[in-house]
Design a protein around this nucleic acid. Structure first.
Lengths: 108, 108
DNA sequence: ACTCTCCGTAAGCCATAACTTACCGTAAGT
DNA sequence: ACTTACGGTAAGTTATGGCTTACGGAGAGT
C-alpha cells in the first residue's frame, strides 16, 4: 500500500523537482527553495509529503533540516512496477503476434 | 519526459485499479467498468489518459475496444526510478554511518 | 537576554481534475 | 433497414490539493 503514497507524492511536478534536487546529495530546505520558483513554505509542505511517503528522510543540524533521499519508499514502488513489467512485455508481444497474424489472414 | 505523464497517470487511485485489472490480461471498457464503482464514461476517460501516457494500448474488436498494458510507458518510468535507486542506497547508508558516528562521539 | 536565521504550521484562495448525465457515432445481428 | 450493444465526447459540478501570506518556535552567535 505504500507504493500508492509514493506515486501520488511523485506525481506533482514541483515535488519531483524537489526530489530530483536531492539526487545531488543532502540539502537544506532553504537551499532547495532557492532553486525553485515557489516559496519556502511550499517546499516545506512538499518535503512533508515526501517524508510521509518514505521517499525522503531528514537530519536536524542546528536550526536547519538536512533532507536526503530514503530508499524505503522507493523500494515498494520499484517492486510494484516490476510486477507489471515482465507480464506487460509478454502480453504486449502476444498482442503484436495476434495482430500480425490477423493482417496475414486478411491479406496473404 | 514521458515518465512524468506516466507518473501522473498512475497517481489516481481508480486509474490504478483500471491499470491493475489489465494485469490479468486484455479487457474491454465495459468489462473494466463493471468491476469498478464508477461509470463507464469515467473508465473511458481514464483509459485515454493511460493511452496518452503510453501505459496502455488498444485493439478494436467490432464495436468493442480491447485494452492491454503497453510496456512503452512503463520502461521510461522504470529507468527514471533506477536513476535514484542505486544513488539513494549509497547516500542513505552514508547518512546512517554519519549518524551512528555522531552518537558514538557524543556517548562513547 | 537579544537578535537573527531557519523552518514548520494555519488559514485562505484558486486552479485542476475526477466524476456525473446526456448525446452521438459505429459495428453487428435480425 | 432497424435495432441493439458498445464506447467516445461534451458540458457541468464538486472536491482536492498546491500555493500564498502571516505567524510562531527553536537553536546559534553576540
Amino acid at each position: 500500500m505504500t507504493y500508492a503514497t509514493a506515486l501520488t507524492a511523485l506525481a506533482d511536478p514541483t515535488r519531483r523537482r524537489v526530489f530530483e534536487q536531492l539526487r545531488g546529495g543532502p540539502k537544506t530546505v532553504g537551499a532547495i527553495a532557492a532553486r525553485l520558483p515557489v516559496s519556502r513554505p511550499a517546499v516545506s509542505q512538499h518535503l512533508k509529503v515526501l517524508r510521509d511517503a518514505g521517499l525522503v528522510a531528514e537530519r536536524p543540524d542546528g536550526t536547519r533540516r538536512v533532507h536526503f533521499i530514503d530508499p524505503n519508499g522507493l523500494g515498494p514502488l520499484r517492486a510494484w512496477l516490476d510486477q507489471f513489467w515482465v507480464q506487460a512485455l509478454a502480453a504486449f508481444q502476444a498482442e503484436v503476434d495476434a495482430d500480425s497474424k490477423n493482417r496475414k489472414e486478411k491479406q496473404p
